[in-house]
């Protein structure tokens, strides 16, 4: 695709976002919506940028990020590990498959009260929730990716004297990498969403809590700020992830 065409498409893509923002500002400007119910985008974004210099706000953001990354990292470790193991070991697969079948469609958020009861109100219950929510897409993607790895890749390694276990965690893992990364990306977005919700439902800090606190005090501007923050965080993480993915997958065939 040519550069101009890309730029053109980007412009077309920005159009609805600009239109929406314009409509939003227009509604407020023409006083169709009372500012207490719908503050204008200028107000909201200037509040967002001024808060970026506020250490307290940043502290809440850091708390959310900490929970997000802890839960996500745990999910990657367990999801990838178990997924690869299930391909190498029949017993693990026989236990794991029905468990996934039953647990994957269960709304994990329902487990949140149980985590609060057993792990307390602090970080651990949120991290646990992020973990259980993010682990399934990663586990499934890893397992399916690893299952469809060309066996001759493994054979080539085995013939060079590599052990079965080592081949599993080097060759199968690397060959399944495109699929694993797809799972991780889905897991990352889910982690973003879930950490925010967990803080909204039950927390005394974090971005989600800021939203609830603002809602309680009818500070509409401050209600929009956390939502914008999590959306921007998600976009940044997504972009970072895509960059990482492009680096990791240099040699792989395109279509994936």
């Amino acid at each position: 695709m040519t550069w101009t065409r890309r730029a053109g498409e980007l412009a077309v893509g920005l159009l609805p976002i600009v239109l929406l923002l314009g409509l939003w500002q227009g509604l407020v400007f023409l006083k169709y919506a009372p500012p207490t119910l719908l503050p204008g985008p200028v107000t909201v974004f200037s509040r967002f940028f001024s808060l970026l210099g506020d250490p307290q706000f940043l502290q809440h953001g850091a708390t959310t990020s900490f929970r997000l990354f802890s839960g996500f990292a745990l999910a990657v470790a367990v999801g990838v590990g178990l997924g690869i193991l299930a391909v190498g070991n029949r017993v693990v697969a026989a236990i794991l498959r029905p468990l996934i079948r039953v647990l994957a469609p269960v709304p994990k958020i329902a487990l949140y009260p149980a985590f609060i009861l057993t792990l307390g109100f602090d970080h651990s219950s949120k991290i646990a929730l992020v973990f259980v929510d993010a682990v399934f897409p990663i586990l499934l993607a890893t397992y399916q990716g690893a299952l469809s790895v060309e066996p001759k890749l493994v054979w080539s390694a085995r013939a060079a004297g590599v052990s079965q276990t080592r081949a599993l965690f080097t060759i199968v893992l690397m060959a399944a990498l495109p699929s694993i990364l797809t799972g991780c990306r889905i897991g990352l977005v889910i982690a973003c969403i879930v950490v925010f919700l967990s803080e909204m439902i039950n927390s005394t800090d974090g971005l989600g809590y800021l939203l609830v606190r603002a809602a309680r005090n009818f500070q509409t501007v401050d209600m929009f700020v956390p939502i914008i923050s999590i959306s921007i965080l998600g976009l940044i993480l997504n972009a970072a992830f895509n960059a990482l993915r492009a680096r990791l997958l240099v040699g792989y065939p395109e279509d994936n």
Partner: peptide, 27 residues
């Protein structure tokens, strides 16, 4: 399998994440 018997497959089965040199050095 063992390193006394080296296979060459019709499908090549090269490691896509390694360079040509990396593939040859692998074993």
């Amino acid at each position: 399998p063992g390193p006394d018997r080296g296979p060459v497959f019709q499908e090549f089965a090269l490691f896509p994440w390694k360079t040509v040199l990396g593939n040859v050095m692998y074993g």
